[in-house]
């Protein structure tokens, strides 16, 4: 039987040592990702949301092994990426691609568009040499880029067009899985809609699986099938998109959803205003990491870390409010 889960992340940890402060024996660490587990079904999109610094980018980068993991497993199509040799990893590279937030710094200014898209295609022999040009042009067409752009340079393009070039570069390698790290955040609303549609069309046509990282809940709601809500390096709630939006269980998810401004002047949100700032990931609060800002915090929340438990099918929550035991 074919395994339907393309990616299984288990107890993923990534700690960065804090270089400046070395506290004698106990070195301080930024616990950027702290015990994160999730799975993504082939051909679906998982949205990863949370405020800046909560560890979304680090999750993406450790999956790709751009950073070595501190602990945990990343099973991609049955292989543990944390254990494969670098040679094997290089061979697998085309299958997992990444699209970045900043379309200005992520494209080499010295290469023409055709080269940017084709560089890795040549390196990995994705198509026979004689088909190379027509292949690149086809990818460009798929991504809404005109053929005459082939010889032009990135600086001649606006943010939206550059993001199309980044997408074309990823797609050209015929990947199975694409990690999209805030691909819309630097773009204007009208351009965002164009790029979302492009990503959806490509997924439909080629069956890509996406991990879509964003702080924008409306965008995530639109594009995702499942959603994970992160806070201070941990996933607080995870599940089917419809469940999360219709029935958010974790107090943080509730606050996050209620904070999104609604484009309707007649709707007055019953807003949960969280107090204070996000604590430092170097020294996160004991027990539940959200407790310092949680409107529902109880004594137990400081003592015990809540377990990440399944309450409905595929709907997991880490919160003491629900775990009466």
């Amino acid at each position: 039987m074919i395994n339907d889960d393309i990616l299984i992340v288990k107890n993923l940890k990534k700690y960065y040592p804090v270089s400046k402060i070395s506290l004698g024996k106990n070195r301080a660490y930024v616990k950027a990702v702290d015990d994160v587990s999730f799975t993504i079904k082939r051909g679906t999109t998982m949205g990863l949301v949370g405020e800046s610094g909560c560890g979304k980018t680090t999750v993406g980068r450790t999956i790709l092994r751009l950073h070595e993991v501190t602990g945990g497993k990343v099973m991609f199509d049955g292989k543990d990426l944390t254990e494969v040799s670098s040679r094997e990893l290089r061979k697998m590279r085309p299958q997992i691609q990444m699209i970045f937030q900043d379309p200005y710094s992520s494209l080499s200014p010295r290469l023409p568009v055709g080269e940017i898209i084709g560089e890795a295609v040549k390196e990995h022999n994705i198509v026979p040499k004689d088909q190379y040009r027509s292949y690149i042009l086809k990818v460009m067409r798929d991504c809404g880029l005109q053929p005459q752009y082939f010889y032009r340079y990135p600086h001649e393009f606006s943010g939206g067009q550059r993001q199309r070039i980044s997408i074309a570069r990823a797609v050209a390698l015929n990947p199975k899985f694409i990690i999209c790290d805030e691909p819309l955040s630097a773009l204007d609303v009208s351009i965002q809609a164009q790029i979302i549609n492009l990503m959806k069309d490509l997924q439909e046509q080629y069956g890509y699986t996406y991990l879509f990282i964003s702080h924008d809940l409306s965008v995530v709601e639109y594009i995702s099938d499942t959603i994970g809500v992160m806070y201070l390096g941990s996933i607080m709630e995870m599940g089917d998109k419809k469940r999360i939006f219709a029935n958010p269980m974790h107090p943080y998810t509730k606050a996050l959803l209620s904070a999104v401004p609604v484009s309707n002047p007649d709707v007055k949100m019953n807003r949960i205003i969280l107090k204070g700032d996000i604590p430092s990931p170097i020294n996160p609060p004991s027990g539940c990491k959200f407790r310092t800002r949680c409107p529902n915090a109880m004594p137990i929340c400081a003592k015990k870390t809540p377990i990440f438990k399944e309450y409905e099918e595929g709907h997991r929550v880490a919160c003491h409010l629900y775990s009466q035991d």
């Binding site: 609303v189 009208s190 965002q192 809609a193 164009q194 979302i196 549609n197 959806k200 409306s218 965008v219 709601e221 639109y222 594009i223 939006f245 609604v262 484009s263």
Partner: peptide, 17 residues
């Protein structure tokens, strides 16, 4: 063109070309 609950059911988002 802004995704929101009102147009979430539509398959494609309206976009200004």
């Amino acid at each position: 063109s802004r995704p929101g609950s009102h147009n979430i059911t539509e398959d494609r988002l309206y976009s200004i070309k």
